[in-house]
């Protein structure tokens, strides 16, 4: 095992610990926790046994497993950024709508003399 693999395994274990914490705080439900746990377990297995991906690497014509992982990670990151952008835009629109509606509802009208 290389130092890099050791670092990756420790990082994966740390993320699994975080999942347990968030599940305990009820931020994640059991389905979400199960999904993320599976993902990080797969991450740890690949970190320990990268040769498991050799088959996929050859099919996709990558020269190294590392290249496959980097490209895969970039695609996932791009997708997450894309989804985050739309989510935050949606939340922003809803907050603005709410604030405007509240503001107009609570308007102070001068009393007529």
């Amino acid at each position: 095992m290389t130092l890099f693999q050791l670092g990756a395994v420790l990082f994966g274990l740390w993320m699994i610990y975080e999942i347990f914490i968030f599940t305990k705080k009820k931020v994640l439900n059991s389905a979400e926790a199960g999904f993320w746990l599976s993902l990080w377990l797969v991450f740890i297995v690949i970190a320990l046994f990268p040769n498991l991906l050799l088959g996929i690497t050859q099919i996709l014509r990558f020269s190294r497993v590392f290249d496959l992982l980097v490209v895969g990670a970039l695609m996932i990151l791009t997708f997450l950024i894309f989804m985050s952008y739309f989510t935050q835009k949606q939340v922003k629109q809803r907050v603005e709508y709410l604030i405007k509606q509240l503001a107009i509802k609570e308007v102070r009208v001068p009393s007529k003399k």
């Binding site: 604030i99 503001a103 609570e106 308007v107």
Partner: peptide, 17 residues
């Protein structure tokens, strides 16, 4: 304190908003 209609945003949304 003036006889005007006053609307208040609870959060700062920006001039355009």
């Amino acid at each position: 304190t003036f006889p005007v209609h006053v609307i208040r945003h609870r959060l700062n949304l920006g001039k355009g908003a």
